[in-house]
Design a protein around this nucleic acid. Structure first.
Lengths: 120, 120
DNA sequence: ATTTGAATACGAAAACATTCGTAGATACTA
DNA sequence: TAGTATCTACGAATGTTTTCGTATTCAAAT
């Protein structure tokens, strides 16, 4: 059950905004170069695959992510660690932190998190 | 210039082992279900795309990654942070560290790295 | 009631990625 | 030198993902 890239984009919206119509997803994604029916079709496919559930009680169907955000994220992260960093979490983390985008707040969060990891 | 999944696998080998023949890559990947000419073709395509450079002076051509490992990794990581973690590096890092696979050595490495970040 | 706008369903085209068969070239070996 | 093994080139088949056009349904507004 591996979402494609487009499917991931849609899942992001659904995770973020919760239950949404196709139109809402379409507008949130706001991809100038893609038509409405494309998104519709993708979401129908996702439904066929069981990635989303759907409320069809009114004319405008409402979609909701069935896949759990954290599970998918972790799966993707693990795959990345394996396939890009040869299984080394620390290499990934260090590269992530070295990217100059990380604020002091985030660094503090991480330090705090590391402390909690030690207490067991 | 975004490598596909198969292309990434090949790049890994080239980054790891340096200049290599198709046969060497093929044997390193050791994918039971894929033939030699498939890998050959992929590497030829990568050459067409300018992802690798090639020494054709002898019969067996030698390939070398042209894309820089750290650049590609960083690009993929940034993309992941944006598209999966809404731009939050710390969320990615914490999920990575929370995955139970991280050894004490790795945690120490990270702590050390955080220290060096503070000294500027 | 008819028109209009917005929604779904669905097939099929287009784009992209992967796979492999076969032909031809080159080197090695008996 | 003949035969065998190994390599590249390349076209074409297959598979997957993305895209959209068109038909149809439904509901709201005139």
């Amino acid at each position: 059950m591996k979402p494609t890239e487009s499917e991931m984009e849609i899942l992001q919206v659904l995770w973020d905004k919760g239950q949404s119509s196709v139109r809402e997803v379409f507008e949130t994604l706001d991809k100038k170069d893609v038509g409405y029916t494309t998104i519709l079709k993708l979401m129908q496919i996702m439904h066929d695959k069981g990635m989303v559930i759907r409320d069809t009680s009114s004319k405008t169907h409402l979609y909701q992510a069935k896949l759990v955000k954290e599970e998918i994220q972790e799966k993707m992260l693990d795959k990345m660690i394996d396939s890009v960093y040869n299984g080394s979490t620390s290499r990934l983390v260090m590269q992530a932190l070295g990217n100059e985008r990380t604020s002091q707040e985030e660094l503090d969060e991480i330090k705090a998190f590391l402390k909690t990891l030690e207490l067991n």
